[in-house]
Amino acid sequence: MNRLDVIDILLVEDNPQDAELTIRGLRRRNINNPLHVVEDGAEALDFIFCRGAHGGRDFSKLPKLILLDLKLPKMDGLEVLKALKLDERTRAIPVAVVSSSQETPDIQTAYALGANSYVVKPAGFDAFLEAVGNLGFYWLLVNQPPVK
């Protein structure tokens, strides 16, 4: 079996520092679920829909949570969200937008497109780690994902 067939958390984040902090924040709360990072919106969709570089992945193995940044290269986060929520095969996957944007239109559009949650990235290092830990704890240990 492909290692990427058993991913619980798909982290869509182009900033390597934020990706690293996110992983640290999760591990600190003992959320050790398999996680995979993709750095742009196009690759996020390739991963989910098993296309391109991810052509060999098993489509039936959907992640339990997608953490989605909004400002991404190639295809922005809102476009990714739209594609996931319009497709009935992927609509149920919980998507938490994690963005530094506090702009009302971004928040409004994200919810209108079907985001399950919207979390603003806190500015400070410790606050960021804590926020990500809380997020992971809620979605992986309290929430019931649509997949087993």
Partner: peptide, 17 residues
């Protein structure tokens, strides 16, 4: 669970405008 749920949706999540 109720504690986590309450904190998540009241404090951590950014609600829709």
């Amino acid at each position: 669970a109720i504690k986590s749920l309450g904190l998540y949706w009241l404090v951590w999540n950014e609600p829709p405008p």
